[in-house]
Design a protein around this nucleic acid. Structure first.
Length: 324
DNA sequence: GATACGTGGTT
DNA sequence: TAACCAAGTAT
């Protein structure tokens, strides 16, 4: 958008588009005031109550932040901690991981779960080494282009590693906003446009405060405003919380569909991969056959692992973690 | 938008 | 004990 005197059709369309974009992010003055009243108590609470996590220390760098974010996708902090430490000691820079076989990343991932994340982190490291000179990129769009990096992880790296102003919307933040601002016990099952808009509207103006706010709202959700049994007595914004002020009503909408696990392909995949992780040498088919008695499902799970690139088939009915 | 994708602790 | 929950992404 440039000259305001340009009245060409293209410029008019563009101006209309800009007005539409403005309207999307137009912040209700009342919401603006709500935001301002939340910033200080939450950021101050974070300053005194934040956990001392290794990826929050300056020496972690952008790579440390990125590694932690991959590992923390759907996995609790306590399970991540030891694996993170080993990982960073072994591969302190993206290029170090990029030089390894992907199977080594899968092996080091251990039992964190969702081992495709290990493969994608390895792929991200390769892309960083090849396309970004070995430095984790600092632009949201560049990060988003990396394997395994979605909206949330890109925002987290931008905000936590580079201290930039960007809305960070994870499950913790969504729950905090649902309660404190929207007066709901839980956020919707899937992230909505309204939630993204709210997150942008609540973001402090300057980079430094916005970055602290992002980390602080996540930490508040993780430690105090938890899914079950929130400790509102310890919450720095309990007095302003819309959900509390409404009398903490029970959630109305549809319950989240709980995923089964026992007997699924995922369980079979997990067992197969557990065998392969513990063996440096190729594993014969017979060893894999022992982990699951139903042959059709077993074969399907193994096929899936191969097509996902998590397992490499060799001649002679042998398998191993991928070398390339 | 719904579904697949691991693992283990908590209630 | 079965269900819930944990810093999501890709298709």
């Amino acid at each position: 958008m440039t000259a305001t005197t340009d009245t060409s059709p293209a410029a008019s369309a563009s101006a209309a588009s800009d007005r539409a974009a403005d309207a999307v992010d137009a912040v209700d003055p009342e919401l603006r005031e709500t935001a301002r009243s939340l910033h200080s108590p939450v950021v101050d609470w974070f300053a005194t109550h934040a956990r001392d996590l290794p990826w929050r220390r300056p020496e972690a760098g952008a790579w440390g932040v990125m590694v932690s974010e991959f590992m923390l996708q759907q996995t609790p902090v306590n399970r991540v901690l030891p694996v993170y430490e080993e990982w960073m000691e072994r591969w302190p820079r993206p290029a170090d991981l990029a030089a390894e076989a992907p199977g080594e990343a899968v092996r080091a991932w251990g039992r964190l779960g969702y081992p495709r994340r290990a493969l994608r982190l390895h792929g991200a490291a390769k892309a960083i080494a090849e396309r970004h000179g070995g430095e984790v990129p600092g632009e949201h769009a560049q990060l988003l282009a990396l394997p395994g990096v979605g909206e949330y992880t890109a925002a987290a790296v931008v905000s936590f590693a580079y201290g930039k102003r960007h809305a960070v919307l994870d499950t913790n933040v969504r729950r905090v906003f649902a309660r404190a601002v929207s007066g709901q016990q839980y956020p919707p099952n899937a992230t909505t446009a309204a939630e993204r808009k709210l997150a942008r509207a609540l973001l402090p103006e300057d980079d430094t405060t916005a970055s602290r706010w992002a980390a602080a709202t996540m930490e508040l959700g993780a430690l105090v405003c938890t899914a079950r049994g929130p400790e509102c007595g310890r919450c720095p914004i309990a007095a302003q919380c819309a959900w509390q002020l409404a009398g903490a009503p029970e959630h109305q909408g549809p319950a989240r569909r709980t995923q089964s696990y026992a007997g699924t392909d995922r369980q079979v995949r997990g067992r197969l991969l557990a065998v392969l992780r513990t063996s440096k040498d190729p594993v014969p088919q017979s060893a894999l056959d022992r982990v699951w008695d139903e042959p059709v499902q077993r074969a399907r799970a193994l096929d899936g692992l191969v097509s996902d690139g998590l397992v490499e088939p060799l001649d002679g009915d042998r398998y191993r973690l991928p070398l390339t």
